[in-house]
């Protein structure tokens, strides 16, 4: 049984269509990332899944429950964890008090000491919440999200505002959880975060899912054109390049090709034969960010939405 099923979900606010037609599934144990610019509908979708907002149309199932059903909402909430964008803890409680209190809401909570360990706050456990640094408060938030030992965890931009090492730390926590079988649905602005954590991503733009798939193949980035870049030295007297290349300023060469193996073979065998040095050789495909910007229409050259159409 999938952990989350969303079919043709729609929601509008006072005539403005926030989510028009969203369909996706999240398998049990999967980490699923929802990517999209501000205002794309990410938060609306997440809040409908959490049971915080009501949908207008479509079918939604979360751990087998309809999140809009009042009769089962408590059962559902006992099995899900939520990490919100805002820090939301009473400032005068200690870290341990806050976690202990929330643990009491759930039938099978994770031991508080284990949570403290997981989020790296063991040494701060007796400190007041208000005395924590911003990063520590967000880690406490994460701790409150997992203290109920959830089957499904919602993370709304979990590392916004973290420094790089704190982000790595948060990723480790999420990986440790998913190792234990927890399903995670997260939203993020960071492509490296989606790439590091998610088994699957969906890009949402203007209320529609415009692409979904594994981060490595989203928008066809595993196939199609690659870009080969290099510089040359010691070319005096050598015959010209065996392949067509664009020369940019400073003597850098760039080749865009869909047949990078052949091009590389021709280039490198030519270089070896003619004893030319190929300096700084790189082969790059579209980054997830390139694909994302293209899909959401924010790329400088957003002229080619074909990748979006293929994947939909």
């Amino acid at each position: 049984m999938p952990a989350v099923v969303v079919e043709h979900l729609a929601k509008s606010y006072e005539g403005n269509q926030a989510v028009e037609d969203v369909t996706f599934e999240v398998a049990e144990g999967e980490v699923f990332a929802l990517l999209g610019p501000n205002g794309a509908g990410k938060t609306t979708v997440i809040e409908i899944l959490e049971g915080f907002r009501r949908r207008e149309r479509g079918r939604v199932e979360v751990l087998g429950y309809d999140p809009a059903n009042h009769g089962t909402s408590r059962e559902l909430r006992e099995q899900m964890g939520v990490v919100l964008q805002e820090l939301a803890v009473e400032p005068f409680l200690s870290v341990r008090q806050a976690l202990t209190r929330n643990a009491g809401y759930y039938p099978n909570p994770r031991p508080v000491d284990e949570v403290l360990e997981l989020v790296g706050l063991s040494e701060k456990s007796d400190d007041r919440v208000k005395s924590l640094s911003g990063g520590q408060q967000r880690r406490l938030d994460l701790g409150l999200g997992i203290v109920g030992n959830p089957r499904l965890l919602f993370l709304d931009e979990p590392t916004t505002g973290f420094d790089p090492s704190a982000r790595r730390g948060a990723w480790e926590v999420v990986r440790a959880l998913t190792g234990g079988g927890t399903t995670v649905v997260l939203t993020t602005h960071y492509m490296d975060e989606a790439e590091a954590l998610a088994d699957r991503v969906a890009v949402i733009n203007a209320g529609h899912i415009v692409a979904q798939g594994a981060p490595g193949s989203l928008g066809g980035r595993d196939v199609g054109e690659a870009s080969i870049r290099f510089r040359l030295s010691g070319t005096a007297g050598a015959p010209p390049l065996p392949v067509a290349a664009r020369v940019s300023g400073g003597g850098a060469y760039e080749i865009k090709t869909g047949r990078e193996v052949e091009v590389l073979a021709a280039l490198t065998s030519w270089a070896l034969r003619e004893q030319v040095d190929v300096v700084g050789l790189t082969v790059e495909r579209l980054t997830l960010e390139d694909v994302y910007l293209r899909l959401t229409g924010h790329a400088p050259d957003a002229g080619d939405p074909s990748g979006a159409a293929e994947r939909e």
Partner: peptide, 25 residues
């Protein structure tokens, strides 16, 4: 839900707060 959208953190549309108020369960 908070009535005031957080600055810099994208709340959906300007009407989201008002609608959410009534619809949030």
């Amino acid at each position: 839900a908070p009535r005031q959208a957080r600055s810099g953190r994208g709340r959906m549309l300007s009407g989201a707060g008002a609608a959410g108020r009534r619809r949030s369960q």
